[in-house]
Amino acid sequence: ENVVSAPMPGKVLRVLVRVGDRVRVGQGLLVLEAMKMENEIPSPRDGVVKRILVKEGEIVDTGQPLIELG
């Protein structure tokens, strides 16, 4: 699984990683606000951040690609 998608609609509050960062399974990639709750979106696997597909403040839909892992 190379693309991390939004599990719910919401607003991207914070991106916690940068392109080139090594991440571990379960590590927070970004914080999504949904229904006034902050939800940290975890990495599904170990890898390297290849691309960040959203910006802070952006509104996303369920299933929208957020981050690509390499």
Rank of each mutant, 00 (worst) to 15 (best):
V54D: 00
R22C: 01
D46R: 01
G70T: 07
K11T: 10
K55C: 01
V3Q: 14
L13C: 00
L29N: 02
K11D: 06
I41E: 11
V49G: 05
E56L: 04
G10N: 12
V23W: 01
S43F: 12
K55N: 06
A6P: 02
S43E: 00
S43G: 12
E56Q: 03
G63C: 00
R14Y: 14
I59R: 10
E68K: 02
R24L: 05
I41T: 15
E58P: 02
G10A: 13
G10V: 10
P42F: 13
L69K: 02
V4N: 10
P7C: 01
P9G: 02
E1C: 01
G26F: 15
N2F: 10
D61N: 03
V31G: 13
E58R: 08
V3N: 06
M35Q: 06
P42L: 15
V54T: 05
Q64W: 10
K11N: 06
V49H: 01
G70A: 13
R51M: 15
V48F: 11
R18C: 00
D46T: 03
G20H: 11
L69W: 08
D61W: 13
E33F: 10
S5P: 14
L13R: 14
A6Q: 06
A6V: 08
R18W: 04
R14H: 08
V48T: 15
K50H: 10
K50I: 15
G47D: 12
M35C: 00
R14W: 14
E40R: 01
Q27C: 01
V19F: 02
E33W: 14
V60R: 04
D46K: 02
G70S: 14
E1L: 00
P9K: 05
I59N: 04
L32C: 00
R51I: 15
P65F: 04
L16G: 06
S5M: 11
E56A: 08
P65Y: 12
S43L: 08
V19N: 07
R24Q: 14
E56W: 04
I52Q: 05
G57K: 05
V60G: 01
D46V: 09
D46I: 04
R14V: 11
V4H: 15
P9C: 01
A34E: 14
P44D: 03
M35E: 06
V4S: 08
K55I: 08
I41G: 01
D21E: 07
L69F: 09
E68P: 03
G63Q: 11
V48P: 10
M8V: 09
V3S: 14
M35N: 07
V60F: 06
R14A: 14
P7M: 07
V25C: 01
L30F: 04
V31L: 12
E1A: 00
L66R: 00
V31N: 14
K50W: 05
M8D: 06
L13H: 08
D61A: 05
P9Y: 03
M8K: 07
A34L: 03
P7V: 08
R14F: 05
P9T: 06
Q64E: 13
V23M: 12
R22H: 07
P7W: 10
V4C: 00
R22E: 10
S5G: 06
G47S: 10
P44V: 05
I52P: 15
V19G: 14
L53K: 11
P42W: 14
K55A: 13
P65N: 07
R14G: 12
R14K: 01
N39Q: 08
G10Q: 05
R51Q: 02
K55R: 13
K55V: 09
L66H: 00
V17M: 12
D61E: 14
G28Q: 05
V25L: 05
A6I: 08
R51P: 03
I52G: 11
L29P: 00
L16K: 11
V4P: 09
V19R: 14
L69E: 06
Q64H: 12
E38D: 11
D46C: 00
E68W: 04
G20Y: 03
V15E: 05
V23R: 09
P42Q: 06
T62Y: 11
P44L: 09
P7F: 09
L30R: 00
V48Q: 14
L66T: 05
I41C: 01
V23S: 10
G20D: 14
N39M: 14
I59K: 07
D46E: 13
R51W: 05
G57V: 08
L29W: 03
E68C: 00
L29R: 00
S43I: 03
R45Y: 05
L69C: 01
G57F: 13
R14D: 07
V25K: 15
A6D: 03
S5R: 02
L30Y: 08
K36G: 03
L29F: 08
G63W: 01
R22Y: 14
K55M: 13
G70D: 03
Q27M: 02
G20L: 13
E68G: 02
E1T: 13
R18K: 12
E56I: 09
V60M: 15
E38V: 14
Q64L: 08
P65K: 06
E56P: 02
V54W: 11
V15Y: 15
Q64V: 05
R45C: 01
G57C: 01
R45N: 12
V17H: 11
V23C: 01
R22V: 13
N2R: 03
G47F: 12
Q27W: 05
E40N: 06
L16W: 06
R51A: 09
V49P: 05
E56H: 09
G26M: 11
E58F: 06
E40K: 05
V48S: 11
E58G: 02
V4D: 01
P65E: 10
L13V: 14
A34C: 00
V49N: 07
V4M: 11
R45M: 05
M8A: 05
K11A: 06
E1Q: 05
I41H: 14
L66W: 02
E33L: 15
V60I: 12
G57N: 10
S5C: 01
V15A: 13
G63K: 15
K36N: 14
I41V: 08
K36Q: 15
L29K: 00
V19C: 01
Q27T: 05
M8I: 14
R24G: 05
V23Q: 06
R22Q: 15
G28P: 04
L69I: 07
E1K: 01
K55W: 12
L53D: 05
L16E: 11
M35P: 09
V4W: 10
K55G: 07
V12M: 14
N39E: 02
G28F: 13
E68D: 12
N2H: 13
G28R: 04
V54Q: 06
E68R: 01
V60D: 00
Q27Y: 06
V17P: 11
G28T: 06
V48L: 08
P42A: 05
V12E: 00
D61I: 13
G47Q: 08
S43M: 11
E58I: 12
V3K: 12
M37P: 10
D61F: 05
G63D: 04
E58K: 13
G70F: 09
L16S: 13
A34R: 12
I52L: 03
V19M: 06
G26R: 06
P65R: 03
A34D: 12
V48Y: 06
V54I: 13
M8R: 06
D46N: 11
V23E: 05
I52A: 04
D61K: 10
N39Y: 12
Q27I: 10
R51F: 09
S5T: 13
G20T: 10
E58S: 14
V3C: 01
